[in-house]
Nucleic acid binder design. Structure first.
Length: 775
DNA sequence: GAGTTTGAAACT
DNA sequence: CAGTTTCAAACTC
């Protein structure tokens, strides 16, 4: 590519020509321009054409696709502009890097997060620069993640990690088809992209080292001055290889002190995430790196949640699980669509993931490994599906990890539905998918649960045999943590696990070994069947896989509902139809979901402790004092929300439903369904939304109360401008559905978590909407 | 662990 | 859309 004549380039560059950085750039090899191009290509390659995931909710997909498209366009545009703009690109990139770095910093410091920076930058820069876009998207990623329980936000973060890997590995991009969450995550890592790009560019041994260093220095500009200086010194040195070596050394030295940024640099320097990914938990150094990465991601994505920040491990684990889910789903989809081999490419990555996961477990002693596993597997998230479940899973891990440290994890959570999720998010599914993709790797047996491996990894407990025992165990295990439900196994005998009767299927996750189902078709090997069935069901009822419990809060912001609706307010999307249980048992989906009954319920003799249909909200609390621990809390929350809602309802009986997001426009992506508390698992994946979820319930007292795995839109986060924080998708009905991910934050139980999220989210809000519109 | 109850999902 | 059947989870013993 021809390097445009600088003289021809007027503008702002002149201002910067004086800067050392600029000088350095000027001296860079001609390759520079190519870089820009490369970058573009890279993104394209990464392009995230999102294949339909097995358990993807249509809504989600739409969202995803649109986003991707947008991104592609941008990239293309940049390409089109060609070399002539290369210089500008360089400049832009420099700036972008700086910005991203800054962003990172900000992320690390939630309080500081401010959209303004990003916005400003964007404004100044023409769209042509890819980075800007990326930057812009970061917010989305955050939103997305946040929105999805688990689904998944967290997922995104992890995914981001994996994305990092891609650059260095040819073809990997194909394999890794990021789903929404992934994209988000990627976006979240935008600051890194530049580096990654470089990496790719650098493919050649030394070539690009200068650039690398240069960029690194730029990044470091935000770091301690000494670092920057050091880097510059290195530049003055001789051979590229030498530079690189020195650079690494330098980085290594500073690594100790440099948290997030360092991780970025590290990645760049090493030139292969592989290293990092492969040794996540093994060596201290490696682990550190990984964690840093994750942290970074987290920061970027989640920045809101102090807790996460606080606990690196926690974050790491969470992300991992989520990430897996999303990726797997995606992969599965990809596989289906593109039998072409991506598998090869990914194999390494996948392995890495697997390793990470397993290792991740190692990082912290996880009692609930089994749960984790499930969560991980089911993932998704649903999840952003099943986010609740995802969230649950996440929570579990988190809890475990944190145990001791912070009691307060924002247990409030997300469901991913997980889980997120998604809910779908969820983890189980992913793993299964992976297997499919890469039989060689973990595959246990074709037909078998892909999850098995996970099971082993995760835990031992899960290996129970008798269905009932399993179930009991499961319950025991999960419930205490809260929502272990997400990890439940099914026991289907006649439905072949292809109907909503099947919890796994409903949650958007594959059945796993622990399931005691018969003639199960809900396995990776039957992807096609699963997809078809799913589609069929969705065609009948688009919301079939949407979270059953919806938090009105999410929708509120978007629609502009009254702020009155508290995040806590959640309702079953369809309402229950209980006749004999008085809505006091898990037979009642409302109760099971930890939400009060609403007008939409047709129950008889409702005594739902979370809120009665008639509006006598928490009267129920009194009813069951003993359970009240959490229930009470919830109830209280509910009450509050109910009050608001009730008022509304009373005033506008007809709109009582409105409390339910469904009634409102459902913009949120339906995550995994969490209907039964358990579900949210994988759908997150689908949703990929699962974003970061905070676990929904940490500890709950009585089992039944396990609540809320339901998806509550993270969106609840009222404050920010990002009303749409959560991924919103429009349902066919145009109604809004909250994603499990979102839910996570909102769960009454975890108010704390929610708050945190709120604080941080604000930083990126504006961007998201912006992006969406652009789409 | 077997059997019953329950209500959602599916079917007509 | 309503009624019935099927199904599997929740629950009880």
């Amino acid at each position: 590519m021809d390097t445009p004549d600088r003289s021809k380039i007027n503008t702002p560059l002149s201002q910067f020509e004086d800067s050392p950085v600029f000088n350095y750039i000027s001296n860079l090899s001609p390759i520079e321009p190519v870089k820009s191009v490369h970058i573009t290509q890279t993104f394209n390659s990464l392009s995230f054409s999102s294949p339909p995931s097995v358990f993807t909710s249509p809504h989600v997909n739409c969202h995803r696709e649109s986003r991707f498209l947008r991104r592609h366009n941008l990239l293309d545009a940049s390409k089109a502009k060609g070399s002539s703009e290369d210089i500008n690109n360089v400049y832009s990139r420099e700036k972008t890097l700086a910005d991203s770095t800054q962003l990172c910093h900000e992320s690390s410091e939630p309080q500081e997060n401010t959209n303004p920076n990003i916005s400003v930058r964007d404004a100044s820069n023409e769209p042509r620069d890819e980075n800007p876009n990326i930057s812009i998207e970061v917010p989305q990623g955050l939103k997305y993640n946040l929105a999805s329980p688990g689904y998944e936000p967290v997922i995104c973060a992890d995914e981001a990690d994996s994305l990092l890997e891609l650059p260095g590995k040819p073809g990997s991009d194909v394999a890794y088809v990021p789903d929404d969450s992934e994209k988000d995550s990627i976006e979240g890592e935008m600051h890194i992209p530049g580096l990654c790009q470089n990496e790719e560019k650098v493919e050649g041994p030394d070539c690009g080292v200068d650039d690398l260093i240069a960029e690194a220095s730029d990044l470091l500009m935000f770091s301690p001055p000494n670092m920057t200086e050091a880097l510059k010194d290195i530049n003055k040195q001789l051979s590229p290889s030498t530079k690189l070596t020195n650079f690494r050394t330098l980085l290594g030295q500073s690594a100790t002190n440099e948290g997030q940024q360092m991780h970025i640099v590290d990645t760049v320097a090493s030139g292969s995430e592989h290293e990092i990914e492969n040794h996540p938990c093994e060596s201290g150094a490696a682990t550190d790196t990984v964690q840093r990465q994750d942290n970074h991601t987290n920061v970027a994505l989640v920045a809101n949640n102090p807790m996460e920040k606080v606990d690196d491990k926690l974050v790491y684990v969470t992300h991992r699980g989520i990430r897996r889910r999303c990726l797997d789903f995606e992969m599965a989809s990809v596989q289906r669509k593109n039998l072409d081999g991506k598998s090869n490419t990914n194999s390494s990555t996948e392995k890495s993931d697997e390793m990470d996961v397993s290792k991740g477990k190692q990082l912290v002693p996880i009692k609930h490994s089994g749960d984790s596993r499930k969560c991980v597997l089911p993932g998704i998230g649903l999840h952003l599906n099943a986010l609740a479940s995802l969230n649950d899973c996440k929570n579990i891990k988190i809890e475990t990890l944190i145990s001791g440290r912070q009691t307060n994890l924002p247990s409030s959570s997300s469901s991913l539905q997980l889980s997120a999720s998604q809910d779908h998010q969820l983890s189980l599914v992913p793993i299964s998918v992976e297997k499919d993709l890469e039989p060689s790797e973990n595959e246990v047996q074709p037909g078998e649960d892909c999850t098995q491996p996970l099971v082993h990894m995760a835990g031992e407990d899960l290996q129970q045999n008798s269905p009932k025992k399993k179930r009991q165990i499961y319950r025991r295990r999960l419930e205490p943590d809260g929502e272990g439900e997400s990890c439940k196994r099914c026991n289907c005998k006649k439905s072949k696990c292809l109907k909503l009767y099947c919890e796994c299927f409903a949650a958007g996750v594959y059945c796993i070994e622990p399931c005691s189902c018969r003639d199960c078709f809900n396995k990776p090997i039957h992807v096609d069947t699963v997809l078809q069935t799913r589609q069929q069901i969705e065609s009948r009822n688009p919301l079939a896989f949407a979270p059953k419990v919806i938090r009105s809060s999410d929708s509120v912001p978007e629609i502009g509902d009254d702020p009155n609706k508290t995040p806590a307010s959640a309702r079953h999307k369809r309402g229950c139809n209980c006749k004999k249980s008085s809505c006091l048992k898990k037979y009642c989906e409302c109760y099971q979901g930890g939400v009060g009954c609403s007008i939409s319920c047709r129950c008889e003799g409702c005594k739902n402790t979370y809120g009665r249909k008639d509006g006598s909200v928490l009267s129920g609390i009194e009813a069951k004092p003993e359970e009240e621990t959490e229930a009470g809390e919830k109830a209280v929350m509910e009450n509050a929300s109910h009050k608001t809602e009730t008022q509304n309802t009373e005033e506008h009986p007809d709109h009582a439903l409105p409390t339910t997001p469904l009634r409102l426009s459902r913009s949120l992506i339906p995550l995994p369904f969490s209907s039964k508390g358990k579900p949210p698992r994988s759908f997150v994946t689908t949703i990929s939304s699962s974003g970061l979820f905070v676990s929904q319930k940490l500890g709950k007292s009585s089992a039944p109360r396990s609540q809320p795995k339901f998806e509550m839109p993270v969106q609840t986060i009222p404050d920010d401008d990002s009303p749409v924080t959560c991924i919103k998708t429009s349902s066919p009905n145009g109604k809004r559905i909250s994603s499990p991910n979102c839910d996570v934050g909102s769960s009454p139980t975890r108010r704390g978590g929610r708050k945190l999220i709120l604080q941080s989210i604000p930083s990126f809000p504006s961007l998201t909407p912006h992006n969406l519109r652009s789409d």
